[in-house]
Simulated assay, not measured.
Amino acid sequence: MKRMSIPLFQIGVLFITLCILLLCVFWLPDTAAFFAEDAPEYAYLRYPLLFGIYLTVLPFLFAIVEGLKLSRRVAINDAFSLKSVNHLKNIKRSAFLITVMYFIGFLVLMQLVDLSPGIGLLGILIMLASMMIGLIAGILEELLRKALEIKEENDLTV
């Protein structure tokens, strides 16, 4: 069972990433076109919003790659290393970058248009989720750093 947990995790992460990319490529442009036709007074926001959402996909993909690298390190029993700490640090930075990008977009949208409660709630939900991922990655990074210090002290003692 233990042998299968990491490959299952990796397959699950790749499946979720593929679903998000497919949504970005196929569903999002069609939805933006529909809303541009449905509310022509906001049609000028179609491409800036799409650009902003696509821009936030880049740190997401970077964090996914770092998570897969980290899971590979766990699979080869090299989880307690500085490279693992760096992977967690990169995941943390990506998550906080996504939070900042959505916060800036949220502020810009509030200045340009009357933000509907549904879109505002969705933006806040994405910000909170990425902030939580960043905080958890930061805590794990610090725990791993402390474990490495303890391991180094034990190696020097023995």
Rank of each mutant, 00 (worst) to 15 (best):
M131V: 11
Q10R: 11
R73G: 00
A95Q: 03
K69Y: 01
K69R: 08
K92R: 14
R72F: 01
G105A: 04
M4F: 00
R93K: 14
F15K: 11
E66D: 12
L125H: 12
L125T: 13
V13E: 00
R46Y: 06
Y47I: 15
L50P: 03
M132Q: 05
F15I: 03
F62P: 01
E153F: 14
Q111A: 13
F15H: 08
F62G: 02
C19T: 15
D114K: 15
N77Q: 13
L88F: 04
E141M: 12
I133N: 02
Y47R: 15
V158C: 08
F26D: 15
I6E: 00
D38R: 11
E41H: 11
L143Y: 14
A129Y: 05
L140H: 07
R72H: 06
L148Y: 03
L45H: 10
E41N: 10
S71N: 04
L28R: 10
M1A: 11
L128K: 08
L112C: 13
I76G: 07
G120C: 09
G138Y: 02
F103C: 04
I16M: 07
Y44I: 11
Q10H: 02
M132H: 01
L97E: 01
L121G: 15
A129L: 13
V158R: 15
I53Q: 01
L156D: 09
A95G: 11
A36P: 08
L112H: 13
L55R: 10
L82A: 10
R3S: 05
R145T: 11
L21V: 15
K69H: 07
R145S: 14
T17V: 05
L97G: 05
L128Q: 13
A95R: 02
C19E: 15
P40V: 00
A95N: 07
A33V: 15
L8Q: 03
R145F: 08
E152T: 14
A33D: 13
L115D: 06
G52A: 08
L23T: 05
R93W: 08
E66I: 03
K83S: 12
G52S: 10
F62K: 03
V108W: 06
N90A: 06
D155I: 13
V113L: 15
V57D: 02
L45P: 12
K151C: 12
N90T: 03
K151D: 14
L97Y: 04
I98G: 01
G138Q: 07
G138E: 02
I104C: 03
L22N: 14
P40C: 00
S116E: 10
G123S: 08
F96R: 05
R72N: 07
